[in-house]
Design a protein around this nucleic acid. Structure first.
Lengths: 344, 344
DNA sequence: ATGAAAGCGCTAACAG
DNA sequence: CTGTTAGCGCTTTCAT
């Protein structure tokens, strides 16, 4: 009826339904307070007018924006987490289900080689009460975000264990990388491999040490030796290629379990260069189930990101709910996406 | 001083600075209205108190959320746009620069094989005045979003030309795929190739026809024949592999320009299977400069997504600005990321 | 079960 | 240049 640019308000609905504004508000927020015939009438008008409560007014009153913030690093190549895209989509979807939207923020430009300001982007949003809570990723970078957010008493949940901070009290969800690598190692062991190499990262990263632990544990459980079967390198294709070459010359592995898909691609290159056919007799497993793995037919450990997102949102709902409880930590187990490189 | 969970308000700042609330508001929104000493005093207090205007109150008053909505499709593998992640990051960064944030929404679950409701996710946000505008992608899917948004008089800009709708009046930004493929074709021609094949998509997609046009135009310009050098297949690795095999048996091309990185990976597989070394004598070019291309060393046409984001935001600023002008359309030219597969 | 009043924090319009 | 007044649309509290 009106200018379509001016959405209906509570007052419009109330007038048309012949009730007070308050009754309309109740029809939306506490429907059980209304007599069923009134409720029905009000609802009919709401549909008719296409009424949706004005978000700003509601937010001003309730102090809740139904928005959760997620900080992205600026565009760069070869980013550490190649699965971020899938995670973001999963988080958006999981949030939608409980009536939340995801607000993206960024650190702003970060000089080459230096780290972003830990709290870049957060403070304004927090003080302007623009978001209800944050989801924090990349906690392995040194965890300064979680410390800062905790100091500011901002509600947040983390994708990633508080590795460095045993006293951390925020809810978190993480993927058990060690278990994932163990599954991968068991998988190639079942295929008959005994000399199973680990192509991992340089020491110093909890994430990397965790994943390596899964390999080591599996090897030990199978009674297999690990000597001469281990490389620790940077997370690049070239490093993976060189590592594979060295390992082949030294321990002569028949299977490679890698800390990342990137490294696995390097391994595949070396095998291709040497004319060694990948598949049953020579197996390669990556980690992340990135698009690269999917396109190249690389067997890879797949993080259950959809489930991670659901758990994060569940934890958030707990934090923001009326009794504000802390959901604690949750460790999810990855699966193995089996492809050509372990079954050709 | 106060509970840190209750951020400072305009009134707090005003009281502490000994001015009225309006003066503080002016200090923020129209600083030139204040005498410089007053301004300085007010600013000092703002810093001291860490004051940031309450977003909800401001939004309620100004009817602007400083949020732009971007709809993502739910998580799925092998998505058409492998560069979405880079685009989202670029958009977030470009928006930040002009004081906007990006709000993500999703279509909700979409049944296998069927399309999402064209307006899924948009309507509520629109009526609740939660976002100021939308950025629309995937316009090539049939463009129903743009039609719906236009009907609702919602401000939006599109990443993608209005292929199917010459009367469209919204601003758009797109990448000139034909020009990109032409650059790729010229590149391999300069390397000495004459039998340059096109591995494209099945007919019916404007995007695909556009890209193919770039190849055809370049071939014609160089006076090269195209017969027996063309394949039109689905966008999968397997299809690319089969297409390459057929092309090799038929026209015997020495270079392959592909409509996507996915197809290029398939081509590479066939070449590897046949023991044909890729590089100078046998060239392959993909499209999208996805992570796959970066990791595999695949030469690929790279869309200037950072620039696309900047242009989109500029167009949005025009739309939302005081005089609400339409920035029209902008066509950006991709670059070529040259790697091993055309220079080995 | 429904209505009236008050106010969240801000800025537009005007008055001084 | 600075202060006063009013009101954006909603929900909370209290009264009916």
């Amino acid at each position: 009826m009106e200018n379509p640019r001016a959405p209906a308000t509570l007052a419009d609905v109330a007038a048309r339904a012949g009730v007070s504004r308050q009754t309309v508000s109740n029809a939306i927020n506490s429907p059980d307070l209304l007599r069923s015939d009134t409720l029905e009438r009000v609802r009919a008008v709401i549909d008719e007018l296409g009424y949706t409560p004005n978000q700003a007014a509601r937010q001003l009153r309730t102090r809740s924006s139904r928005l959760i913030g997620l900080r992205l690093t600026p565009p760069q190549e070869f980013t550490a987490n190649m699965a971020m895209d899938r995670f973001v989509r999963s988080l958006v979807e999981a949030s939608r289900v409980v009536g939340y939207h995801v607000l993206l923020l960024s650190t702003g430009p970060v000089a080459e080689g230096s780290r972003p300001e830990p709290m870049a982007g957060y403070d304004d949003l927090l003080r302007s009460t623009a978001v209800d809570a944050f989801v924090v990723t990349d906690t392995y970078l040194g965890n300064q975000q979680t410390v800062g957010l905790a100091q500011r008493r901002a509600p947040f949940v983390a994708f990633g264990r508080p590795w460095d901070d045993p006293d951390a009290t925020h809810p978190w969800v993480d993927v058990d990388g060690a278990a994932g690598v163990q599954v991968a190692t068991d998988h190639v062991r079942e295929l008959g491999h005994e000399r199973i190499a680990w192509v991992g990262w340089l020491p110093g990263s909890r994430l990397g040490e965790d994943r390596r632990g899964g390999w080591h544990r599996a090897m030990t459980a199978h009674g297999l030796s690990t000597s001469g079967l281990e490389a620790a390198v940077e997370d690049t294709v070239e490093a993976g290629r060189d590592a594979a070459a060295e390992l082949l010359d030294a321990g002569g592995p028949t299977a490679f379990v890698c800390a990342s898909d990137t490294l696995a691609v390097g391994v595949l290159q070396t095998l291709a260069e040497r004319g060694l056919p990948v598949g049953r007799d020579l197996a390669v497993v990556g980690f992340d189930d990135s698009q690269v793995a999917q396109v190249m037919g690389l067997t890879s450990v797949r993080q259950p990101l959809e489930q991670v997102a659901v758990e994060l949102v569940r934890a958030l709902a707990g934090l923001l709910g009326p009794d504000g409880y802390d959901a604690g930590g949750a460790l999810l187990t990855p699966t193995l996406a089996v492809r050509r490189t372990t079954s050709g």
